[in-house]
Nucleic acid binder design. Sequence first.
DNA 1: CCGCATCCGGTGCGATACTG
DNA 2: CAGTATCGCACCGGATGCGG
Lengths: 117, 117
Amino acid sequence: MKELQGRVLSKNCPSREILNHLTSRWGVLVMIVLLTGTKRFSEMRREIEGVSERMLSETLKQLEQDGMLVRHSYNTVPPHTDYTLTAHGVQAAEKIQHLVDWLENNLNDILLQKQSA
Amino acid sequence: MKELQGRVLSKNCPSREILNHLTSRWGVLVMIVLLTGTKRFSEMRREIEGVSERMLSETLKQLEQDGMLVRHSYNTVPPHTDYTLTAHGVQAAEKIQHLVDWLENNLNDILLQKQSA
DNA sequence: CCGCATCCGGTGCGATACTG
DNA sequence: CAGTATCGCACCGGATGCGG
């Protein structure tokens, strides 16, 4: 039996792909924004500064396929679509939020050390 | 005073760049591999399946500049260079490891739900 | 031989314009 | 409002070179 510890290190393990989606440039930010509650497309686009429509759309699609969030589209005019984390999504997002919290709390320290490097 | 919660959401906050390095495709894997101890370049290249020399080199350089790891080069023939996490690096890597642990523990569940989607 | 710089071809990203 | 289509450019990855 292969050691299980390093599955994401294996090129072909499906965990690699899911991890890449979760930790992608915009995936990370989508997850922590959705951790604060259900959001609409344009709402997220405004909150996540710098994301293009294309990449937000693509990122949401990936995370939906991975079962991290659900898309709910109302048949109204004008259209209304919103996104909500699943149970799995909440758990993953919390882990990501911990990393972000740590980073923001230690940012000054880190930047100071960068300075002196 | 601007709400501090959303700093990584701001386009120009330096935390955004550091977060991108930490959560980059290869940055994540470099961090969790180094969490198991000091490693040589070629050692990491073998452990992280699929990484190119170029990207490993670049990723290590970024993380070094962010103060997450230190590079030690011995003037020997053949050359010998190794990489070790800093105190900050260990803390960040632990947060990343938590996410990876969660993912690997729930992978079957997640894949099953993907199936039925 | 190992660690890395350089060069080059393909992929993926972002800006813009457009549709239901 | 919530996306999709298109296109040009940047960046990634593989191959190669080379200094130590």
